[in-house]
Design a protein around this nucleic acid. Structure first.
Lengths: 150, 150
DNA sequence: TATTGTTATACTCTATAACTATA
DNA sequence: TATAGTTATAGAGTATAACAATA
């Protein structure tokens, strides 16, 4: 791995650059590893939409913006989920142009199963740590969530 | 988001399940956000290979296994990098069947530029935090790295 | 006239199977 | 005979452009 070009040996900013680098890589590696758990059930982008419509119904356009893909791509992804019985289309109550995508009970069940597999992996890792480290992680997770919310 | 099915209200394991869930999601969201930085230069899988051969030359087969793609896919990805002048092919010194993929100076430069953009984003987030939180993160990053190494 | 969603079409990344060269 | 790498071909996922329906 290429270290992030230190600017001056004792510059306190370097410490922060190094921390940013290591923290970024650790998050990316954990995320990547987690993704392998439960991936065989569903393609990542389909899982992502399935998770999103768990909050409530969304229009294809909203989903395309959230997932940062084009509307035609989202049309296809939604069609896959609908064909698989994991989501349904419903007409918008006031705007005839729009469609609402909802999660079916089957979709919720599958989402839960995949999420549980990922949580299980993560929990196995936590169980390997010292209690003090787990406590520290517990205290720090809100900070990570704050960073993640940007 | 679906919370991870609590088993019993006061079970201390629930706490750990909840922590696993929140930590997993935070890492995934940070990783996802970081990925948007510098992505326009290179496709994610190409960047990933470019980073990997920064450690030293690798054969296509090794790269395919590390990236968990098929050998033909890696052949194409490597061909793209070579065509772009970011990597080169070199015959294996002792095994005439194998090829070594090396990063060029241009490849190293581009990798450094993308990595720097991602680090910059992460550092901007750190600068928004309280000093105490940064110190806590500094103490905890090795723990996250330990988890990431599984 | 603007917006939502879809269809048409093409490009990229992926995989499996088959082929070539070397061990 | 087994292995490394590539080529051939096909299947997803993505994008832009064009179209239909509705506001």
């Amino acid at each position: 791995m290429t270290p992030p070009q230190p600017k001056a040996p004792q510059d306190p900013e370097d410490d922060l650059v190094a921390l940013a680098y290591r923290l970024r890589l650790a998050c990316q590696q954990i995320s990547r590893r987690v993704r392998y758990e439960g991936t065989h059930y569903l393609a990542p982008h389909q899982f992502s939409v399935l998770a999103r419509i768990g909050d409530g119904p969304r229009t294809p356009r909203e989903l395309a913006e959230i997932e940062r893909v084009s509307p035609p791509s989202m049309t296809k992804t939604v069609a896959c989920l609908v064909d698989a019985g994991l989501a349904t289309r419903r007409p918008h109550p006031v705007d005839g142009r729009q469609v609402l995508i909802e999660r079916t009970a089957e979709g919720a069940e599958l989402h839960g199963r995949i999420a549980r597999e990922r949580d299980t992996w993560m929990m196995r890792q936590l169980l390997e740590l010292d209690d003090a480290d787990v406590d520290a992680l517990r205290a720090l997770t809100p900070v990570l969530e704050q960073v993640a919310a940007r």
